[in-house]
Amino acid sequence: MAKHENAPANDEDIHPLSRKLLFLGDHKFIDNFIWLPIIGLVITVMAGFIYPFPEGYAAPWDFFASWAILGFIAYSFVVLSAGPLFKLLARDESYYGEGGDDD
């Protein structure tokens, strides 16, 4: 993420509201963003003990923090499959000869 820090030269014409949000582009914010989901995960997994599924309403594969694990695996699988899929399915933008360029 280091490459993102090059501050653009034309920072003058930034929207007034955005001036208060500029921290979003900050190096420090980006690097520490990961703590938000980690803390969230810890809290919700804990809360999972307090609010279990009622008896008979849980899936058979349901266990401790199962939704979190499922979410993590599913998300990672989708993102990681992008590489091979892109190799398989991507073609040049003029593939259909109709011009994919709109800019």
Binding site: F33, I34, L36, P37, I38, G40, L41, T44, V45, A47, G48, I50, Y51, F53, A65, W67, A68, I69, L70, G71, F72, A74, Y75, S76, V79, L80
Partner: peptide, 17 residues
């Protein structure tokens, strides 16, 4: 709780990847 587990896990995976 379960929905937030799912979403936080996905966000965590995003940040990690």
């Amino acid at each position: 709780v379960t929905q937030m587990q799912l979403l936080f896990a996905a966000m965590f995976a995003f940040a990690l990847l």
